[in-house]
Design a binder for these strands. Structure first.
Lengths: 152, 152
DNA sequence: ACAAATATAATGTTATTACATTTAATGTAT
DNA sequence: ATACATTAAATGTAATAACATTATATTTGT
């Protein structure tokens, strides 16, 4: 369905208005798809995002404030997200030896295993997108999104 | 900043992975921009979205379930959003005469006035996007987003 | 006509978000 | 050295979102 059909809007005032609504709508769409995929694994998108950041550095630790900086949604409370992950034993939290204010977070083997299982499912979902867009189109789309936001 | 710089990710595993993250990130970006714009006017994005739907039909009423169907985020609780708008006297709620289950919502003059003031501010913000994308690029971007979601 | 199914909106509940404040540690200037 | 500013993380909070349930009205099948 085109965006017009989805939200039953017959027309937009300009291509700019249409694209702004479409980016919002498409972001929500991916959000919901991701929630649907992650739900059976018992973690939220934000928690998943944190785990991926930690895996990228594993087995090195990442500090809470660096997690915040790298989150898609910077407003998320990384401290409380880490709480949830610690309870699930997907990460461990240790005081940083060189700076006692800071806290080092490391993903556990259990966390890595979980991510690997999710990866499989994610790739299946991504494969559906392959049927809709060529790699070149995906690249063009990313580039236009960067430009929309004022990237160079 | 490109998406890589923004979230400090040096590389993505594929153009598809990159575009999925980028749509999420760009959706969040617009969300925050919209919040920033709407905050001085004392309404949230979801409330703004409801008001716009109501204006599109004004002075005809719109039923609560039709509002839900046309929201960008279908999970929002239209009933409670309308509550907030009623308190602010931006809409009125009247029982539908032909179906006593349903409720007719109409935007008030105060609501229309508020939207008009917001429109001015929105156009200023949209004008910044004009500097980043041509109308043709905006159209291509919208079309690619529709295709990403599997639209025809 | 009447019971069951469906439709519509409102409400209850729990978790999360957005934002402000607090606590504690480190850095810096005098 | 010591006061002041800054940084890092945690915590408090009010509002909102996600989802389930309820209450009431209408439609449908027999």
């Amino acid at each position: 369905m085109s965006i017009e059909t989805d939200i039953r809007q017959s027309a937009f005032s300009s291509p700019y208005h249409r694209v702004v609504v479409n980016v919002l709508y498409s972001g929500n769409w991916i959000n919901h798809e991701q929630m649907r995929i992650l739900k059976p694994f018992g973690i939220t998108q934000q928690q998943y995002n944190v785990l991926r950041i930690l895996r990228g550095r594993s087995p090195q630790p990442v500090k809470v404030n660096e997690i915040t900086e790298r989150m898609l949604d910077k407003m998320s409370n990384a401290s409380r997200l880490v709480d949830k992950l610690v309870v699930k034993k997907l990460v461990v939290r240790t005081e940083c030896p060189s700076d006692r204010r800071a806290v080092d977070i490391v993903i556990t083997q259990k966390g890595l295993d979980l991510l690997q299982r999710i990866d499989t499912r994610q790739r299946e979902w991504e494969a559906e997108i392959h049927q809709h867009l060529t790699p070149e189109e995906a690249t063009v789309l990313s580039g236009l999104l960067d430009r929309l936001r004022g990237s160079e």
